[in-house]
Design a protein around this nucleic acid. Structure first.
Length: 1178
RNA sequence: GCCGCGGUGGCGAAAUUGGUAGACGCGCAGGACUUAAAAUCCUGUUUCCGAAAGGAAAUGAGGGUUCGAUUCCCUCCCGCGGCACCA
């Protein structure tokens, strides 16, 4: 107990009252989470801070306090709460600070952490300090490196040459997030693109799951949508175009990705990204190479700034001498390069459909390329009994009057001149005939087809519902000479001249059923055309313009596909030209290399000798198999192209094989233990492969089994084999092989990685065979309709399998053995980046030069380091077991604590950190190392705290609020309470020093409420009863619910209301105690002080959260509003749950109400229980 | 341009999700205490008319649905955040 006596709250703050309790808490185990405790667990997590030199921000205080309140309440409610803290300390600001001040980043980091720790402790946050982690601690980053190695082993980390953001002034590669508006964050120089080999993580392989698994978790909706948009999944087709050149005999093909294969007939040209490899490949065939080269170079040096600038005018160059063939109609179309096509998305090439894509449209207009409509918009709403018709309308323009001809109907509506076209009649002739019959106009200067649509509409003249193709023609008048019109034209409408704006205005009134939608669209396009042609110089071209139609509709101008809906046509047209449906993502693989000092070293070694030696692939065929069959020849060719040595032996006796014989034959291939070896086994080759590895004790990088035979094959499968012409003896051989295939569990040790392919329609290998190979711990992949992966099922290529092998860029990259981790950051004199753009580590010769872990020869370490997203991608796992030196965390502890029940962070981290950490967690889950596939059950985010001037706090503006000062002036409790009270937790709110005074006054009142010396139990200034007691229980209920819903601002206000009442009415001791407990999470120091002052020996945080009496939270007397016609005229008090009739009678009896109802008819009385009575009078 | 969020007193904001708009706090005004100031306490405080009683208007603007709209629907304006040639 605090021996000091504080008379006022001010005494308490000024004389170290808060520090006293902080010291007390530190030496207790109050806030320590207990592994495996029987109590229910709750894992509450804040994003761990970056310990910058600026110290703690009041924004940190806001979110940490909020979750502190949550944690404290949960503990009081009996939960075992984990609320940990740590430091995300690698990264640029510290490195820059170190360079500038010539101090080692390690020392700077330590100093900063010290400050942060002191500041956080001064706020009375209930972190479990015994679990503190620091990403820059080798004991921590050892495991960050370890996870990277697992990613590498599973083929998810790979090297690739990619363009990076290069600052020519700092001579350094910049991370995406270091580029602000196309300029270097540090020096403001415009950033260039430069090619560099980088480590990438294949997050795109997880793209689908990162979207799907958002479904069950409780994230704020906007966080989910931001993640989904960032991943940017789109479904489409990959289509192949033939490319021809005048000189070229050999055919080349160009793949494009499109979400709209239904518009293929409208593809009138193709565009490649300037970086597309085909461009340089075709260099000799391109007639205007100089011009093309110039454009490519321009695109390369075009800075990020220029690319993102507002000016988005399309540029491009045609590849002269090159043509592509549209596979839909075999038409020759031109090929262009343009930088509006991105190399990094899809295939880096597009088919351009200007009629149905805005960007293509703009490009086509600028370079005068043909525009061909192939989708007609379907407008209006489908109706019963539609007659199918064909027709259209004419938009007739008179250049002299600058007006358009319309039919003005008797009922006030304006129409276009339109009608049906006969079956044998030419469309244009028919529509012009209708125009002349109805208007009399016939002498035209210019006639042009504008577009076709498929409207549903009601024809009032013919009283029928109609649907069908409608074309629109623009007709520019030469003279206004007239011909006689049809009778209908005299009787029902007359010819008038109007401006297009007037016409649209008129249609707005009559278009309730969307019957005129196609006309609206036609008019926009036709007038746009008239403007473009220079006839119409008065209409507003921001309203009337020709545009691409990007919606759905009915297929036209597409051969046999005409009349289909665009959705149906997608699949059919794709199938016709041999394309395949495909999914694309905006998400790119994660660039994981940084050329900086202050990050985790990437634990890889490059060995020149190993790189020179070609890795071997041994492919073992199956029963009846040989090297010239199925996908094997294709595989050999592809893999050799990729730099592998491929062995596909023809094994003896392939019609009646014996395992011993096969193993012997394989043994003679000259495979040695030191070889970098990959083994593929197809069908019966699979058990052979397994036994071959076991027998020869080989080390294998990756084992790939395709449609493996296994003991789970059943008689049915063998019967199928027999039907296919397989002899009984051969079938017995299969059984022999399968029986001999044992000891697979041992393979795990010598095989780094394994994968098994099955097909969903394999007649011989049932999916049960998966069980036979489970001991391998292999990844299982199920492909669609591949049969038994043989040519009978049409499998002569197997592109999926190529992705299992590292690319040539990865040859020679050897992982550091796990026992040698961590690879520690060496001590250096300078942390500055080098002139060559290499990491500063590259110059530390002692460190860089090392031994190859595979061959023992001379090798060099990777000098790039990891981005600072690495350490933060798994820190929440480490908190569960922070001191473990055998594993990143113990599986059983993870099982107890995960998932994180509540995770709070800033919106700025929803796309990167959140996505990256979900990805790593999923990966570890797939490895069986983490118990949940989604790490965070609930994610919320906090709003920013702005400076008092409404701007962001910044040193240069001098508007920073330092939490230390606030704590010194008013105390930590006031700071905490104010940050909760300032507004909704998720909103951005400016700081107000005046506002702090308000909560401080509140705390002073509470302090004064506790008498000294303490009162005996049950006694107070008044006899305990009624009002205050009821309010207390209501307040307990509200605070409990508000904390759960993170509505801290209203919780504080409810406590203020309670204290105002208690001050006036007095308070019994037990009531005061209950109140102090609910206030305790918000103001821990003061409540702890008052608790001891009331005579308690134990901490208030050892108490139980008070329960409320539900009976007391219900009102006995309610105040009802009395409205007349919805306006408040009086109120009345009544017993709760008063009946509707009584309430009505009572309301009608009110004098004030009578004033308003007198002499009027009471039409209706609405009674809302316990709320109001509304009298409707006329 | 697209997506998401928001617009309520002088200020930060409440409003049981369609039911008495402005709780609570700040500020301001008047008063008490004081020689005085600060602090504290009391009273008032959306705007307009009115001495008051009372009345009218009001939740960015306009329209709609409803007995009743800050809340639901449509159109528009403004602010913030994210993405930005993603085929």
């Amino acid at each position: 107990m605090n021996k000091k006596r504080y008379v006022t709250y001010d005494d308490f703050i000024k004389n170290g009252g808060e520090e006293y309790w902080q010291t007390g808490w530190q030496s207790s185990d109050l806030y320590q989470a207990e592994d495996f405790a029987k109590k229910k667990k709750k894992y509450i997590l804040i994003e761990f801070p970056y310990p910058s030199g600026a110290g703690l921000h009041v924004g940190h205080v806001r979110s940490y306090t909020a979750l502190d309140i949550m944690s404290r309440m949960l503990r009081l409610q009996g939960y075992n709460v984990l609320y940990p803290i740590g430091w995300d300390a690698f990264g640029l600001p510290t490195e820059n600070y170190a360079i500038k001040n010539k101090i080692h980043p390690r020392l700077a980091t330590e100093a900063n952490i010290k400050t942060f720790r002191r500041q956080l402790k001064s706020l009375g946050l209930s972190f479990d300090w015994s679990r503190e982690v620091d990403t820059t601690d080798p004991k921590y980053y050892q495991w960050t490196q370890w996870i990277f190695l697992q990613l590498f082993k599973k083929g998810l980390a790979y090297k690739k040459k990619i363009p990076i953001n290069w600052c020519p002034s700092c001579k350094i590669g910049l991370a995406h997030e270091e580029v602000i508006d196309g300029k270097c964050e540090r020096c403001g120089t415009a950033v260039e693109q430069r090619e560099k080999e980088q480590w990438l993580l294949a997050i795109t392989k997880y793209a689908d799951r990162l979207i799907k698994d958002l479904d069950p978790v409780d994230y704020l909706e906007k966080i989910k949508t931001q993640q989904v948009n960032w991943i940017g999944r789109s479904k489409g087709a990959e289509l192949k175009f033939e490319v021809r050149s005048k000189k070229l005999e050999k055919k080349e093909y160009l793949n494009v990705f499109t979400t709209k294969p239904d518009t293929l007939f409208g593809a009138t040209y193709m565009v490649l990204a300037p970086e597309h490899e085909l461009v340089t490949q075709l260099k000799d065939q391109i007639e205007n190479w100089r011009e093309v080269e110039k454009y490519i170079n321009q695109a390369k040096t075009k800075s990020e700034l220029q690319r993102t600038s507002l000016e988005k005018a399309k540029t491009g160059v045609e590849l002269e001498g090159i043509k592509a063939i549209n596979p839909a109609n075999n038409e020759e179309i031109p090929v262009w390069i343009a930088d509006y096509v991105l190399a990094s998305y899809g295939t880096g090439a597009i088919m351009a459909v200007p009629a149905h894509d805005e960007r293509d449209f703009e490009f086509a207009k600028k370079f005068k390329l043909p525009i061909k409509q192939v989708i007609a918009p379907e407008t209006g709403n489908k109706r019963d009994g539609e007659n199918v018709v064909q027709g259209g309308c004419g938009v007739v323009f008179d250049p002299k009057s600058q007006k358009y001809a319309v039919a003005a109907w008797n009922n006030g509506m304006i129409g276009l001149f339109s009608g049906n076209v006969g079956k044998t009649e030419d469309e244009q002739a028919g529509i012009l005939r209708e125009v002349t019959e109805e208007s009399g106009l016939h002498d035209f200067l210019h006639i042009e087809k504008i577009a076709t649509a498929y409207p549903h509409y009601y024809n009032s003249a013919k009283n029928s519902n109609r649907h069908g193709s409608a074309a629109c023609y623009l007709a520019v008048l030469k003279t206004a000479n007239m011909r006689p019109t049809k009778r209908e034209a005299h009787e029902k409408f007359e010819l008038q001249w109007r401006s297009p704006a007037e016409i649209l205005n008129n249609w707005r009134k009559y278009n309730q059923k969307n019957d005129l939608d196609h006309w609206v669209w036609f008019l926009r396009q036709a007038v746009g055309k008239a403007i473009e042609l220079g006839y119409d110089s008065t209409s507003d071209n921001s309203i009337f313009y020709i545009s691409a139609y990007v919606g759905k509709g009915v297929i036209i101008n597409s051969g046999g596909f005409n009349g289909l809906s665009s959705d149906e046509a997608k699949k059919k047209i794709t199938a016709k030209v041999g394309g395949k449906m495909k999914v694309q993502y905006k998400l790119r693989d994660w660039i994981f290399s940084r050329q900086h000092y202050w990050g985790e070293p990437i634990p890889m070694v490059y060995c020149e000798q190993c790189a020179q030696r070609k890795p071997k692939v041994l492919l073992i065929h199956g029963l009846y198999g040989h090297s010239k069959e199925n996908w094997l020849p294709w595989f050999k060719k592809q893999m050799e192209k990729n730099g592998y040595e491929v062995l596909i032996p023809d094994l003896p006796n392939n019609e009646r094989p014996s395992l011993a014989e096969w193993l012997k034959a394989l043994g003679n291939l000259g495979i040695r233990k030191g070889d970098q070896l990959f083994i593929v086994g197809h069908s019966l080759g699979a058990p052979t492969a397994c036994q071959f590895i076991l027998k020869n004790k080989l080390r294998v990088e990756k084992l790939i089994l395709v449609a493996p035979t296994g003991k789970s094959q059943n008689e049915n499968n063998f019967a199928n084999l027999q039907k296919a012409g397989c002899s009984k003896e051969a079938i017995n051989c299969i059984k022999d092989f399968n029986d001999a295939n044992t000891g697979l569990g041992k393979l795990k040790k010598s095989v780094e990685n394994s994968v098994v392919y099955f097909s969903d329609n394999d007649p011989y290998i049932p999916l049960d065979v998966q069980n036979d190979y489970r001991a391998l711990g292999a990844e299982e992949k199920l492909l669609r309709s591949k049969g038994h992966f043989n040519s009978n099922a049409g499998v002569v290529e197997l592109p999926e399998i190529l992705e299992e092998f590292p690319s040539a860029l990865d040859f020679g990259w050897i992982p550091v053995p796990e026992k040698d981790l961590p690879v520690e950051l060496p001590k250096v004199k300078h942390y500055e980046p080098t002139d060559t753009g290499e990491s500063p580590l590259a110059v530390i010769k002692d460190w860089v030069n090392t031994e190859c872990p595979r061959c023992g020869g001379k090798a060099k370490r990777e000098t790039d380091t990891m981005p600072n997203w690495a350490g933060s991608s798994w820190y929440f796992l480490r908190y569960c077991d922070p001191k473990n030196n055998k594993a990143f965390a113990d599986a059983v502890k993870l099982k107890y604590w995960l998932p994180v029940d509540l995770y709070n962070g800033g919106m700025e981290h929803t796309t990167l950190h959140l996505l990256y950490s979900r990805f790593w967690n999923k990966f570890l889950y797939d490895c069986g190392l983490v118990p949940v596939s989604e790490p965070y059950a609930r994610r919320v985010s906090h709003g920013m705290v702005l400076a008092e001037d409404g701007k962001k706090m910044s040193k240069s503006l001098g508007n920073v609020i330092n939490p230390d000062e606030v704590v010194n002036n008013v105390g930590a409790d006031s700071l905490r309470l104010y940050e909760m009270f300032m507004g909704p937790f998720a909103d951005t709110i400016p700081w107000s020093m005046e506002g702090v005074k308000g909560v401080r006054r509140f705390l002073e009142k509470v302090f004064a409420l506790t008498p000294q010396p303490p009162l005996p139990r049950g006694e107070g200034k008044r006899v305990p009863a009624s009002g205050v007691r009821v309010l207390l229980h209501k307040t307990i209920k509200k605070i409990t619910e508000d904390i759960e819903n993170m509505k801290f601002n209203t919780a504080v206000s409810a406590m203020m209301i309670f204290v105002n009442e208690a001050q006036a009415e007095g308070l019994a001791k037990d009531e005061l105690e209950k109140f102090l407990i609910i206030l305790a999470p918000f103001a821990p120091h003061m409540t702890e002080e008052l608790w001891s002052r009331l005579g308690h020996k134990q901490s208030i945080f050892k108490e139980k959260w008070p329960a409320y009496d539900a009976n007391l939270t219900k009102d006995e007397i309610v105040r009802l509003a009395i409205q007349v016609n919805g306006k408040l005229r009086d109120t009345m008090e009544a017993a709760a749950d008063i009946s509707a009739d009584e309430a009505k009678a009572k309301a009608l009896a009110s004098e004030k109400v009578k004033k308003w109802t007198e002499g009027k008819l009471i039409a209706k009385v609405i009674v809302v229980k316990n709320r109001l009575v509304n009298i409707v009078v006329k």
